[in-house]
Amino acid sequence: MISYKEVFENLKSKKEGALVCFIVIGDSDYETSLEIAKTLVNAGADILELGLPFSDPIADGPSIQAADVRALNNGMNTDKVFEYIKELRKFTDVPIGLLSYYNLIYQYGMQKFYEKGFITGVNSILVADMPIEESDSAVAHSEKNKIDTTFMISPITDNKRIKEITDKVTGFIYAVSRLGITGARQDLEKSTLNFIRRIRQFTNKPICVGFGISKPEHVRDVIKAGADGAIVGSAIVDLVAKNLGNKQRMLASISHYVRELKTTTRI
């Protein structure tokens, strides 16, 4: 299993940004989502960001909520999530980040969750509804289990908080490129470019930009602006939703899309 540090350093030496691909574990079912993850890696994803499906995902938009519903309806749960990671690890050693909501971790038992993460080969855990103020216990368990922390920074996070958040990050900084929830959009706001520069004042840690990144030119723009990676989520999840009846077409379209995105991470 490769560390974030290795991935980002290696890409930097090749003058490339990281392509971070997000899907929901178990969407549309366990087997399909395992095949999707493998497809992402084969098509050039440098990092996988995998979501645990939650009934009430307040930080996510309609695409990802629908994916959560599909996964839950097909029986996904936290035990199966770790089985999935274990199985996926047989196939790839690219970094795997988990994205969860606090309640899922709390009900599983925080200690058990992070231990299972370590055992199965999880690189990082991002908790969508956990600001740094509530993160002491999660940070302690991360350290203990050699799991990296990832936190989000939004365009309206002030400089004092940016400093505090970047201090707590050991994996990469998840820069939210716009206000609002996840979901593909037509244009990437210009302010994103200044935003990356603002975070850079405080840290040399890797910054990946997510929320609303759906087109090759978005990826190119954020990498050019100095981000270490671009996170693509809803757009991939939409390809799952669009091709529910035809798995071959689903995998082919995802593969094609991700390959195209990956070419734009090379500056």
Binding site: A128, P131, E133, E134, I153, D158, V176, G180
Partner: peptide
């Protein structure tokens, strides 16, 4: 924040970072 709004072990602020400034 001046406080985390805890009622014993209950309460708190479990929200995405985007909402913290508000």
């Amino acid at each position: 924040m001046k406080s985390l709004g805890k009622f014993g072990d209950f309460g708190g602020i479990f929200v995405p970072e985007t909402l913290m400034p508000a």
